[in-house]
Each structure stands twice: as C-alpha cells, then as structure tokens.
Design a protein around this nucleic acid. Structure first.
Lengths: 197, 197
DNA sequence: GTCTATAAAGGGATAGAC
DNA sequence: GTCTATCCCTTTATAGAC
C-alpha cells in the first residue's frame, strides 16, 4: 500500500523538536516520535541512521534563522534605549512563539559536552552576544557589559523557561505568559536600573 | 550474607542527587543508582516504593536544606533592601557551591509532567516563592510581585546555569563566576531598578 | 518510503531465600 | 536489609515484504 503522504525529514523534525524540547533526549522514544509523525518507528530509520542523528538534526533545524531579526535590531540607528527595548521585546516574542528553541539550548548547556558547548558559543551565540555587550557598553559604560548582557538575556529566557511550572506558583496570572507584559517588565527593570547607576 | 554497610535513605539520596542532576529523571536507571550506591537494584525498593518516590525524595533532600537558610533571611527583621541583598547573595553562594541544586530545579521546571510540576510547586517551592513575592511587594508595591520574584530568582540562576558555556563567549573573565561579583551586580540592578520606578 | 515482525538490550518492579 | 533470579514491558535497531 502506497502512503498518501510520504514524510520529509523536515516534517519529522518539526514534530520531533517540541518533543525533545519538552522531555529531553532520553525522555523521547523513537516510537513516540513515529506515532506523532504518523509513521512506524522503522520508517524513521529510512530518514535518519539512528536516534542521535535525528536529535542533532532537530537541534540544527531549531536554531536556523533565529538570530537574524535580533541582530538587525541591535545594528539599527535608533537610540541605545530604543534598541534595548526593541531587542527585549523581540526576544520575548521569539521565545514565546518558539519556546522549544530556548528549552533545547538550556538542555544542551546542562549536558556538559565541552566540544558541543564550544561550537554552540562560537557558531550560534557569538555575534549576537557581541552585539548585546556593545549595546550594554553604550547604555552605561560603568557596568560590566558581559554581566549586564547575561542578565538581560537571562531575564527574558528565565520567564519562558519556567512557563510550565509558573502556573502552579502563588499569584500566577494569565498575563504573566504574555510576551508584551514580560517585555515591558524586563525593559523597565533594566533601563531604570541603569539610569541611576 | 550480612552486608557490612547497610545503606540509609540519606546515603542513597546523596548518590542519586548528582546522577539525576547530570542526566535527568529518564536518563538515570534504578540499576545505575544501585550500582553507584553499591547495592542491587532490588535493595533500593526496600528504601523507596518506586523510582518516582526515590526521585521526589532526592528533590526534596536537595532543596529543603537550601530553602531553610533562604527562608531565614526572608523572615528576618532587617530592612527590605537588606533582606533582598542578603537573599541574592545567599542564593548566589548556594548555587555556586552546589551546582546539582540549580540543575535539578531547572530540569524539573522544563519537564512536562504536569502532576509532578504541580506537586513540586505546591509542596516544595510554594513557601519560598511566597516569601520572595512578599519581599517584592514591600520593596515596591507598584511592581507585579510575581514577575519581579521570577526576575530576581532568574537573574541569579541564569548566571550559574550558563556557567558551562559562558567561558566561550566574548569578554568572559574569571571573576564572572565569583558568587560575590554576581551577587553585587544583580543586587545593584534590582535595587536601582526599583528605586526609580 | 512505509510496513510488519522480530531480535537484542535495558528498563521498572516483584518473589523468596538468607 | 540485601541478595539472586525472574517477569514483563519498553526501547533501539534491523530484516525483508510490498
């Protein structure tokens, strides 16, 4: 029987990415992926040699083209305050609409493979992080630009990385998941914290 | 044959905690834990009814000791600014000296198991988080205390959760891993950000 | 390109001896 | 309190038909 919709690698990865992001490498079986894609487990091995290869392809796919719009904001001609505000807002939007991205990165950082970490830092993070440190230096040269850059990125990322458990904490509200609300909160905290420093 | 060194729950948990921190729940088998403890897998079931219970005990064990010193700071009679500063400093110290702690928390927060998330939020995180939100409300009632509490905790945690990859980023220095330096940076950012709000 | 069937290994958990 | 032995299920991966 010929399948009505033969699956491409991209279709499989689109299903696998949120699964790996949500449960990690060992928390997702090939059967689970196959079931979600609508294939038998064996069929996956026609597209990828093994589970590791499927996982690494999913990582690469998830990282594609995420940094472009952020770098465009950083290198615009607006005031440094405006660029900070726009950067935070855009990062909130990106992470909100594709939280798998930050989850995968976080899991990768915790798995401690030095070679993969170095690759991640130099190939994916470097230019963007460099741009943020330069913006930080413009905003307030008295601060350590590295620490400030980590803080700004961390402020945004942490709100969305904790999205799964935050609803069960006291005082949780629907709006706390709204990227606009989080962006405004973070922007205020950082901008005001810098002005008086 | 009588065992020379019968194992206590605490001894088992002390072995299990770094294993779960490093590889996550599904990345660690009962056989692996048993092997590291120096027991057969079956013996573990004398101490814990199942793997879930062992894991939850490990989480509680890893967290309760830490939470105590933090809650003591939150409920002290110092000014709210002093309590914030001390809380941030203590959290930096805790997370710096015991990386398993933050790794376990982060893995748990990214985990998709709704039932376990709810249990952890209500049974383990609730009181501490409640204390932080109350402090936030004291510091500046105009801010959303929930968002501010997440931001404060996230600012600290992110610096240490990214410790593995940060050395490969531009402008990285040795001092960026010093809990005192990070604590001062975060405290300044938050306190100044609130004063002018 | 996908299927069914299956091998081989590893996982959680229990039974019963000591 | 711990052991060995075992049950039964899941997992990764392969073989071969269509």
């Amino acid at each position: 029987m010929r399948p009505l919709h033969p699956k491409s690698k991209e279709e499989i990865l689109a299903i696998a990415i949120p699964l790996f992001a949500g449960s990690g490498y060992s928390g997702v079986s090939m059967r689970t992926i196959a079931q979600n894609v609508g294939l038998s487990a064996a069929a996956l091995y026609h597209h990828f040699p093994d589970k590791q290869a499927l996982y690494l392809s999913a990582m690469a796919q998830a990282f594609v083209d995420k940094a472009d719009s952020l770098e465009k904001i950083l290198s615009s001609s607006a005031t440094s305050e405006k660029r900070l505000s726009q950067f935070i807002t855009r990062l909130c939007e990106l992470v909100h609409q594709d939280n798998d991205f930050s989850m995968l990165i976080q899991r990768e950082m915790m798995n401690g493979d030095e070679a993969r970490l170095q690759l991640l830092a130099t190939e994916i993070y470097h230019d963007l992080f460099q741009g943020v440190t330069e913006l930080c230096q413009e905003l307030n040269p008295q601060h350590d630009p590295y620490l400030l850059a980590i803080s700004i990125i961390g402020l945004v990322m942490y709100h969305f990385q904790t999205a799964a458990i935050r609803p069960y904490l006291p005082h949780s509200k629907e709006q706390h998941n709204d990227p606009q609300v989080v962006a405004r909160h973070v922007t205020n905290l950082v901008l005001l914290g810098l002005k008086t420093a």
